[in-house]
Nucleic acid binder design. Structure first.
Length: 202
DNA sequence: CTACCGATTGACT
DNA sequence: GTCAATCGGTAGA
């Protein structure tokens, strides 16, 4: 039985808080009568203030316009030949968001495999570009309202307790490397790039 | 219009 | 670990 989509009030908060609470929630994609679903295991926060890695750091452009809109909408952008999915946080004109980096596939695995052209369950949704391909998420869903419960939305799941949340630097950013704004579930095999054992995070 | 480049991935050493 | 593919977005002439 479904709990319905996360409400807009969930997203209308600091992106760090939203990022941590998104771990364990369900990302749901509906295509016609088909349901694709996975459990979020890795995210990154992008801050409205002082975050040089944020696409919106130098102001509003055509690409990042969704981040300046109300919370609870998707921000989908293209990188190289792939797409990445964010959910917009905080108030309009406060351009912050949470990047969904990895999900654990739960439903619609066969269709995900078709979309990806790959068979290994572990490789289906491990990485932001991979999960978008698996769920057929592209620029058409940029700006999509994820609180409505159609096409693409998020649902409550079992929260990941604080002690099971690993903090880490964000992946692939050329600036803002020192900030620990990546959050993932410890020991989850579907995380895209776990920290090596024994590395110290201060 | 040109030039540069990246919130990635996949193949390879 | 390294590295190239590949292309839309952005800034600037």
């Amino acid at each position: 039985m479904s709990k319905g989509p996360l409400p807009r009030t969930f997203y209308n908060r600091n992106p760090i808080v939203v990022a941590k609470e998104l771990l364990g929630t369900l990302l749901v994609r509906r295509i016609g009568s088909q349901i694709l679903c996975g459990r979020i295991v890795e995210v990154e926060a992008y801050l409205a203030e002082g975050d040089t890695a944020n696409h919106a750091f130098r102001g509003r452009t055509k690409r990042n316009a969704s981040m300046f809109g109300p919370p609870g909408h998707a921000y989908v952008y293209a990188i190289h030949t792939h797409y990445c999915l964010n959910v917009v946080t905080e108030a309009p004109n406060v351009p912050s968001a949470v990047l969904i980096r990895a999900i654990e596939p739960l439903k619609g695995v066969e269709l995900m495999k078709q979309h990806r052209g790959r068979d290994k369950l572990l490789e289906l949704c491990r990485g932001p570009g991979r999960l978008c391909a698996a769920l057929a998420i592209d620029k058409q869903l940029d700006g999509w309202d994820v609180t409505v419960g159609r096409r693409l939305w998020l649902e409550p799941g079992e929260p990941v307790p604080d002690e099971n949340i690993q903090l880490a630097p964000r992946i692939g950013v050329s600036s803002g490397k020192e900030l620990l704004l990546r959050f993932y579930e410890k020991d989850n095999r579907f995380v895209s790039r776990p920290l090596r054992k024994n590395v110290q995070i201060r």
